[in-house]
């Protein structure tokens, strides 16, 4: 997963300044618990100008692509929630996984190919973040799969598995919603989902699951994605239902075909 996130960064066309600017904007506008104060803020003054430009660009993109549902001033409408104070991380998750903009109104926005470049997403994130304090992008070190997989697995089972399945295969929710599968997912989006609680998913803030623990969970999911199923093909990790269907259709089905051959008159 860490590998994927590195690749992801290299594909963006943004200048290094943009990153600094984004961090700076986060620092300027957020405070308290969500400010990831671990980064330095030395480039504050130079970045301010670049920031303004980025926010302006994001605002334009937002007005063109998002405002019909979320309102020109992020105030929301019947079609979409207000976005004041949801933070840059929420935008990064929703737009980066292609969930936003939604293809159509349904029980849930599905994951699809992202509709914007990372630069554009960053611009919109900066714009939304400028509206009020909200979670910003996490420190890179919490996205590396270098934590304790065993601890992550335990936390995953207690906090995540009931919706996403112990192997991250996903599951059903009420009224047509679902918890998506998690295998091979970019670490920043796993992190982003936990912090921002997109759609039906509840929020797991840093006092519930600390950033280190979030890294452990990412490590466990990375382990599951990287290591093949030990016993052979995993039949979708869906548990006994797929196993039962398999034994009836292929196991018993195959043996019945053999009985037909076995009892047929040979010529």
């Amino acid at each position: 997963m860490a590998k994927i996130s590195r690749k992801h960064r290299s594909t963006g066309r943004r200048s290094p300044l943009a990153t600094v600017a984004l961090l700076a904007i986060g620092l300027l506008t957020t405070g308290g618990a969500y400010a990831l104060a671990t980064t330095t803020a030395t480039a504050e003054s130079q970045a301010a100008a670049a920031n303004e430009q980025l926010i302006e660009e994001g605002k334009k993109l937002f007005a063109a692509n998002c405002a019909s549902c979320h309102g020109l001033n992020l105030e929301g409408s019947k079609e979409g929630p207000a976005l004041v104070g949801v933070g840059a991380l929420a935008v990064d998750f929703q737009v980066g996984t292609g969930r936003m903009p939604m293809a159509f109104q349904g029980p849930q926005a599905a994951r699809k190919a992202p509709q914007f470049t990372q630069d554009q997403i960053d611009a919109m994130a900066a714009y939304v973040a400028s509206s009020g304090p909200g979670p910003a992008l996490p420190d890179e070190r919490f996205l590396e799969a270098t934590g304790d997989a065993a601890k992550g697995a335990e936390l995953f089972r207690i906090n995540c598995a009931m919706c996403h399945n112990v192997a991250g295969a996903g599951g059903a929710l009420t009224e047509g919603k679902w918890a998506p599968q998690l295998k091979g997912l970019d670490a920043r989006y796993i992190y982003g989902a936990m912090v921002t609680g997109p759609q039906a998913m509840p929020v797991f803030n840093d006092l519930n699951i600390s950033p280190e623990e979030k890294r452990d969970i990412i490590t466990y999911l990375d382990y599951v994605s990287e290591n093949p199923s030990v016993g052979g093909f995993d039949l979708g990790s869906l548990g006994p239902v797929s196993e039962g269907l398999f034994i009836w259709i292929f196991g018993l089905g195959g043996l019945v075909a053999i009985t037909v051959w076995l009892t047929a008159r040979s010529n």
Partner: peptide, 21 residues
């Protein structure tokens, strides 16, 4: 079963074993 599937928007809790809400 542990009823643990919480949906923060609808405030529904779902049991994954027999789908009580």
């Amino acid at each position: 079963c542990p009823v643990a599937l919480y949906e923060q928007q609808t405030h529904h809790l779902l049991c994954p074993c027999h789908q009580s809400e």
